[in-house]
Every structure is written in C-alpha cells, then in structure tokens.
Design a protein around this nucleic acid. Structure first.
Length: 577
RNA sequence: GCGCUGGUAGCUUAAUGGAUAGAGCAUCUGACUACGGAUCAGAAGGUUGGGGGUUCAAGUCCCUCCCAGCGCGCCA
C-alpha cells in the first residue's frame, strides 16, 4: 500500500484502540490544512464522555514517537489531529511504490469472481450514444477490477432473440441472404431494421410470415437458425468494428446473447415453482416480490411467462443470475445499464433472493448511469431526430482531433497524426463520459469536449507527451532514471510526489464506489500538479546533476502514473501529440 | 397517484458526516530567448432549490415543499 494516509491510519489505529478500549477507526482524511487529518477523536469523545481535544492528546501520548513518518502532529480546532509527513518518508515511499508493477496500488485482500454485463447492443440495430455509456463505463470498471486482482468475467448481452427476429429474418429472406449480409456488413443496420419494421406494420401477409417465423426460430428449425446466424454474425462483426475503433476489451469470447440462456428458461420456471413463489395472474406466470406496486397501488408482479406462453427479459435475467452463481461462480454481478431500468433490477434481485437463486454472500449491482443529452437538455439526437450512430460520432471525434493535431504540430507525419488523432479523439469522448458522476445526465457538447483545456483527456495526454519529450530531447532512457535518489526540496516536488503516492487511494475509490469519475478527478489533479512543477522546476537545466536526476525520476513516475491511470479508463497516452 | 434519480458560481462540475464548499470554462490581471504556451501565477464569482429537524459538526442523514428527468404487468 502506497497511500500515506493508509500508512498513518494503520500506525494510529493501535493508539486509538488503546484509548477507546476497543478497535476504533482513526478516520484519516485528506485536508487542505495539512497532508492528512485524523478525526477519530471527535467521535470517540462522545462515547468516552471526554473533551475531544483531551481524547486527541491521549491518543498521541499512546502513539509514542512518530517522527520517522511525521514531521508535524497538531491538535487543532475542536479535536482534529493534523498530520504532516516528513519529506524523507514521502521520498522513500515514492521510490518503493514505483518499484511495484502496480505503481503502489495494493491488491484486493479478497479477490473473487465478478461478472460485468455491459454494452449490450441489439442485433440488426445500429449502436448509438445510448450504448456509449454502458460500453465505456463497463470497460473502465472491468479494467480496474481486474487491476486490483479480481477475476473479471465480461459479458456482452447482445439482443439476439425475441419477437423482432421473425420480421428481421423474413426481411432477410426477401432481400436474399447475400444482399442482406452485404447491406448489414456495410453498417446500414438502421436501414435494414426500419425496412423490416415498415413491412411488418404495412403488410398483413408479411406480419403473418414474421409471426410464423418466430415460432420456427424458437422451435429450432435448421434453415431459420441459419438465417438467424447470418444476422447475428454480420451484426457482431459490425459491433467488433465499433469496439475496435473505441478501443474496448470486448471480443467474441465475451458474447453472451439472450439466446444463450434459452435452455435455462424452462428451468427458471420450474425452480420458481418448486420454491413456491410462482403464481398465475391474468393468465401469466408471475412472482410477487414485496414492496413493488403498480399505478393503482396493487402488488406489482414480475412476469416470468407471458399469457401466450413466451418468456421475456425478466426470465432471461433470472436465468442469468442462476448462471452467474452456479456456472461462473460469481460473488458479484455488475449490470452496466441505464438508470431507467432501476426498478427492473430491484425486482430481479428481490425475486432471486426470494427464490433462493442468489445466496447471501452473492450480490447483484445495477451500475446505473444517466442519459446523454443534447444542448437542448433533451435526449441526444441527430438533426433528423434519429439516434446518433456511435460509429459516426467516433469518426467525427477523430476528425476533429486530427484537425487540432495538424494545427498544433504541423511537422508530424500523416501516419503519426492519424494514430495520435485516434488516441486523442476517442480519449476525449470516453473521458467526457467518465469524468462526471455516472448517475447524472450529461450534455454531449463537441465544443467543450474538444476544447482541450480543463478536466479533459487531452490535458493529461499533453502532460504525458511533454514528459516523453523531455526524455526524447535529452536522449535519456526513462528506465535508467528509476534508480535515482529522490530529493524533495521545492514545494512543487513535494506536492507531486505526494500526489503520485495517492494513486493507490484513487484507484481504490473507483473500485469501492464503482465510479470512474473518482479516478478522473485524481488524474486531473495529478496532471495539474505536474504542470505546475514543470513550470517552476527546471528538469534538464536543474542546478545540479542530483537534482536533475531526481526530477527526471519524478517526471518518469508522473508519466507512468498518468499512462496507467488513463489505461484503467481505457484511454491511451500518446508519446507526442 | 406511488416510486426512483437529480437540483452546488453565468456555464460544466468535485466534495468517504468534519474546520473557510474545491476545480475547470468563460471574464479580468500578470508571465514568453518556450526542458512543447494544448501552459503557468493571480483576481473576481456561492444564503449548496425553499423550509424544518438530528448531530460537537450537514451540500452530505431525516421530514416537508418546489422544480426537472425517468419508471410504474405480459417490449427489451
């Protein structure tokens, strides 16, 4: 563990325990009045019936000599203990943490298997901005959970089953399989879907065929299944193109379409029945969970099997719970799905518990996120009122980034510029999606996103590129400075080293809250601390070789931390831009 | 009607119950023979939607009201 706050909390805990007579959290927090602050005495004072400052003093008496770690310990205000680390302690900790492959981030003390369901586009439908958030947030969480040692199982629940496939397959047959595959591979998924939909609505004959086709599909008719596979394969090939462009981890091995749960659906019904929770209501098989009511304040059921005998997405999701617990061995299941589905997931969890599908030591966690809005604060749409195609949006981001790179760095080769533009453009889109609390809606604004100032990916990428430039210009191998002595003299050097040590805490805040914006905030602070250091502390022209080496060490450490932090968010760090 | 989620500076936003609510953009003032100015230093900008309450301590917890968005049985 690199975080100095954790180190000092560990050091103070026995002293607090001695005073309290039981285990007691020192409550070490960041503060702008010192490096850290222990607030535990305030809470403790009440239960001990003592003055908080008196408690704080007793704790410090019990703690003994802390001078190897702390330069200053002060009781302040009502009973805060303000803590300032020694420069030597920070320097030594920094050097130690930089030797670890995780840059000081401690591993999970209880690693386990976690499933994470994200992206989930629909077959034969275009990916749009609605999928952006799930894909980007899910990917960042998958990366960070894996980084701290969990066994992460990614699942992409593509919509590859259900009634729309009747009309889609019939439309495919009308077009001819080759023509249809060609159309789909061109990425014109919306046109295909809309045309199928139009025919379904306008033609009774087509509608009849479509309904019949659904029955054949669910009955396992070989020819129908072949058409279905064509639809799925062409679509996933297109999804993979988008994923590649976006730079996310998802691949074919992560595909877990709704169809994958088909064989479990009947079993779900059987098990619910066996558990004695299944009821019949208005011709449907349902489960009532406590606390859910409809408009008329009557109990609201979760429909497991529709009146026509068909299953729906609740059935699939329950099958998924069983699959996660029993096959995958997951202790936690994360579903990165928009906020409007909150009640659905609450009901899935409630029914899963009630039926015994979900043991007490297993959890379901709906990773909710708000909507992407346009400048008018309504759902983000194109001028024509359609969903904005994700692929086109990403292309535009890269084009805009390319223009900016061409302007700022005209000497760069076209090849390098294309690569950098992709990292910067895609990074900007991803970062803007991750940088604010995921529960809130955010306004998609090209100007703000691509104004490469403030809390944006390019600001951090720029700091990274400048560091690379220092080493490149001086012809110094970055790895060669890692054994240097770190000297902390200037306040900016100190602030930077301290910030680097806090990477551990930042990563864990993201893990604990499953909120990527926590890490974004940290990286912005880190980049800000670096640029301030960079302006005020000459590196290559430092006053002595020792200082120069020490500062090169800090530069390298900063670049590694920025690159690692951005990588955990799924964002690349170019060496020049 | 019931439920969920938001409401913080002109705009975008941060803040594990802790002291003086922290940033960025825009605005204003400074700093360029620049280790990459896609920068830095500074100023100004807040009754944290209103009102009660709990607490040594509330943007944060509870109650209530207002505003906005979303959800509320056979779509996913």
């Amino acid at each position: 563990m690199a975080d100095p706050l954790l180190s000092v909390a560990e050091r103070l805990a026995p002293a607090f325990a001695a005073v309290a007579g039981a285990a007691c959290d020192p409550v070490v927090r960041p503060t702008d009045r010192a490096d850290a602050q222990a607030n535990g005495a305030l809470a403790l004072a009440k239960s001990l019936g003592m003055q908080p400052r008196e408690v704080a003093q007793k704790v410090l008496d019990a703690a003994g000599d802390l001078s190897d770690m702390l330069a200053s310990v002060e009781i302040a205000g009502p009973g805060f203990i303000n803590l300032v680390f020694t420069d030597d302690f920070l320097a030594a900790q920094t050097v130690t943490s930089l030797e670890s492959s995780t840059l000081g981030v401690h591993a999970s003390p209880s690693p386990h298997t976690i499933t994470i369901d994200y992206s989930s586009p629909n077959v034969a439908k275009e990916m749009h901005v609605g999928h952006l958030r799930s894909t980007v947030i899910g990917d960042a969480l998958a990366r960070v959970l894996s980084f701290v040692g969990h066994n992460v199982v990614r699942e992409n629940h593509i919509g590859d089953w259900g009634t729309p496939f009747g009309m889609l397959i019939e439309h495919l047959i009308d077009l001819g399989e080759d023509n249809a595959a060609n159309e789909l591979s061109m990425g014109d998924l919306n046109g295909f879907y809309k045309e199928a939909r139009r025919k379904f609505e306008e033609s009774e004959e087509f509608k009849t065929r479509a309904r019949h086709r659904v029955v054949m599909l669910q009955g396992g008719d070989a020819e129908t299944l072949q058409y279905w596979r064509t639809l799925v394969n062409e679509s996933t090939r297109y999804f993979n193109k988008v994923y590649s462009q976006l730079g996310v981890l998802l691949n074919d091995a992560d595909l877990m379409g709704e169809s994958a749960y088909n064989d479990l659906l009947a079993e779900v019904v059987q098990r619910l029945n066996k558990a004695g929770v299944l009821e019949t209501n208005d011709g449907a098989d349902v489960v009532f969970a406590d606390g859910f009511t409809n408009r008329d304040n009557e109990p609201l059921p979760l429909i497991i099997r529709k009146g026509d005998g068909g299953y729906n997405y609740a059935t699939t999701d329950l099958a998924c719970v069983i699959d996660h617990v029993e096959r995958v061995g997951a202790k936690a299941s994360l579903y990165v799905v928009g906020a409007p589905q909150a009640q659905h997931f609450q009901m899935i969890e409630a029914v899963s518990r009630k039926a015994g599908f979900l043991p007490d030591d297993c959890s379901i966690n709906h990773i909710q996120f708000g909507s992407v809005l346009g400048a008018d604060r309504k759902m983000f749409k194109s001028r024509s009122g359609d969903n904005v195609k994700l692929a086109e949006l990403l292309d535009e981001a890269v084009e805009r980034a390319a223009a900016a790179v061409a302007e700022k760095n005209p000497d760069m080769s076209a090849e390098d510029r294309a690569a950098v533009a992709r990292m910067v453009g895609i990074g900007a889109v991803k970062y803007s999606d991750l940088a604010s609390d995921r529960i809130k809606d955010y306004i998609f604004d090209w100007d703000r996103m691509l104004a490469f100032e403030g809390n944006t990916a390019p600001y951090m990428q720029y700091a990274h590129a400048r560091i690379c430039s220092i080493f490149r210009r001086a012809g110094i191998d970055r790895a060669s400075v890692r054994s240097a002595q770190l000297q902390i003299a200037d306040p900016r050097e100190r602030a930077l080293a301290f910030r680097i040590l806090r990477f551990d805490a930042a990563v864990w805040e993201m893990v604990d809250t499953l909120s990527p914006h926590k890490l974004c905030t940290y990286l912005f602070d880190l980049a800000s601390d670096f640029t301030s250091f960079y302006e005020h502390c000459p590196v290559l022209k430092a006053e002595s070789d020792d200082v120069r080496l020490s500062r090169l060490l800090l530069c390298d450490a900063t670049a590694r931390t920025i690159a690692q932090g951005l990588a955990l968010l799924g964002i690349e760090s170019p060496e020049q831009m």
